[in-house]
Design a protein around this nucleic acid. Structure first.
Lengths: 340, 340
DNA sequence: GAACACAATGTCATCGTTGACATATGTCAT
DNA sequence: ATGACATATGTCAACGATGACATTGTGTTC
């Protein structure tokens, strides 16, 4: 019983008294088949519980696996999970299967995942590049016609289709919201390293907003941390300044959480806060957290679109770049006025 | 340039002046090869940028794809995302690739995903069964030696290895925590339909705790909702009862959120609350949310273990069942005393 | 009624790799 | 010198499917 061989097309064919090719024709609706034969083949397929072997099929047909490979940093992160989910449903609608791997933000793992995907001859490659990776090695693949798309961050060392959030505009909007509320001293809490693409972009957006409002930039108001605790400490440092900020812009998820914790611990309900990236419980917080929300599902869907269009024959050598806009969601924390 | 053929073993062999078989031997460390030949082969491999075709290899070698298929309800849900991440790293350590699909909790999608995976001849199948699905059709696969493991919920219609959370014990612990704090009227907020496995188990745990404490069960204290809003409304109904609960047990994630919202809206800071399943921001809430935390990473890892042991030849026909314990994390909301 | 179109099926090679077995050369003990 | 044996490589078929082309039979056309 264990390891019983699966029926193949040949088995079905023998059962019916035809050749494998005829079975293939029935199952693929390819070429003419007598109605009667078709019936008998289908009956035999059911009787034997035959299932076509996609591995063999893919190998013969395209020399390409009907799968696309996706590399994300973390599966447990709902942002990337949602991206992956959107990609999956988009490609599944086209009969493609999604193969996912997580890189844990390390260049090595990312590299080895990509190698595995290439070895499997995936039809396309979608990558959220790790901060430290180099993607030069993918140039040849792309040149050879493999669709390559980068998500959320641009790749280092090569041009390719990419989909990113409107980080700079989003950050500008968030900070502008605080400025519109009357704030003039707005702290920036970002992640580390400061060279991270998203961090750089959001920081630029912060400066854009200040400049547009004619508010001078003060480097004392910029702090960083690489996790929630560090972000919390960073906020505490800002609040302890001689001329402290009256509002905060948290440039990412855990910076937001760190800021919320810091404000809660110090009991400061007079400091406005806008966070970049939405949180499940944002509206349940006290005060409810105003955020600049990204749209991970749209990012995934757009990236899948780029891939599919390439698979459909879009051949322009130029890299296309899509920017998915963010959306400001005022909930309360960003609408706290500055002390008069 | 576009669609340029990839080099095959034969290409490498020609380059070196040997046969494909020799190249195969070098790359698989299989059989004796002269040191000199090996060098030249490896050099040619690098020169041509040759990468073995895993599709062809898998097909020849095992008639099994070196991949395992995983079906989860939602990728964007961090619980399942974390499960998937744990599975992935466990199987990758064994040279296997993870193929994921999300069923959106619908039996149809789940079915079609499983069919795709089977057609790809995955080496094993891991499924978080959708509530409405029937898995009888997998019996034959399991009988034929395909490792099948169910996660988070047992399957309907067939016995197979499975890994679930300690739902009943966890719920009992959570409710016992409230009872230990002196509460006697404890509301239960669950999901719908009430036939859902996890809901049933947690409800049992709730009753277990009441019984152990000698507190009579009151069906008036049981409410349900199928999303956060509904759960919020359910809690409001409970609080409006003539003899209202002094504490609440929220049997899942969105029930917890609904309860938090309800308590916030009504300004009731005197009602204790314990939620099942942890939330990212739980500790930032006011009061910080006491939860019964599950361990999705452990669930994924354990399930992967079961699969790998089967692949290693574990052949017992009996279904193995692992229960991953939960952990009570007191943070404040569960420690509010009943009004005296 | 010869020529032809089309339907229904079969034959064979092939995708890229590896298992089973064969061959050629050299080494060593008898 | 002669097996016996190990080393280094080659040959061929096979995994399961399909593409290109061949072969039959049947009805249509002028």
């Amino acid at each position: 019983m264990v390891g019983m061989r699966r029926p193949t097309m040949a088995d079905v064919a023998r059962e019916v008294g035809v050749t494998a090719k005829t079975v293939s024709r029935v199952l693929n609706d390819d070429g003419p088949v007598a109605a009667d034969t078709r019936e008998r083949v289908l009956a035999a397929v059911r009787r034997l519980g035959y299932q076509p072997n996609l591995m063999a099929r893919n190998m013969r047909v395209g020399a390409r696996d009907a799968a696309i490979g996706l590399v994300i940093p973390e599966m447990g992160n709902p942002f990337f999970g949602t991206v992956a989910g959107a990609v999956e449903s988009a490609v599944r609608a086209r009969g493609l299967t999604l193969i996912v791997g997580s890189s844990s933000e390390t260049a090595d793992l990312e590299q080895s995942l990509i190698a595995t995907f290439l070895a499997r001859r995936v039809s396309a490659l979608m990558v959220v590049p790790s901060a430290t990776g180099d993607h030069r090695h993918l140039r040849a693949e792309r040149a050879a016609g493999l669709p390559v798309v980068f998500l959320d961050r641009p790749a280092v060392g090569m041009a390719a289709d990419q989909v990113v959030s409107g980080n700079r505009d989003g950050a500008r909007d968030g900070v502008a919201h605080l400025l519109a509320g009357g704030h003039r001293r707005i702290g920036f809490v970002g992640d580390l390293p400061a060279t991270l693409y998203t961090r750089r972009e959001r920081f630029q957006g912060y400066r854009d907003a200040l400049e547009a409002a004619g508010v001078p930039f003060d480097r004392m108001l910029v702090e960083s941390g690489h996790d929630q605790e560090a972000a919390c400490a960073a906020v505490l440092r800002l609040l302890a300044l001689p001329d402290p900020p009256t509002a905060l812009f948290a440039a990412n998820n855990f910076a937001s959480m760190g800021a919320v914790v810091a404000l809660a611990r110090t009991g400061r309900r007079d400091v406005a806060l806008v966070g970049f990236d939405d949180l499940t419980l944002a509206e349940v917080l006290d005060p409810p957290l105003t955020v600049v929300a990204q749209d991970p599902a749209a990012i995934g869907a757009a990236a899948a679109e780029l891939v599919l269009s390439r698979l459909d024959g879009h051949r322009s050598k130029a890299a296309r770049r899509l920017v998915i806009p963010t959306r400001l969601i005022p909930r309360g924390s960003g609408e706290i006025p500055p002390p008069s």
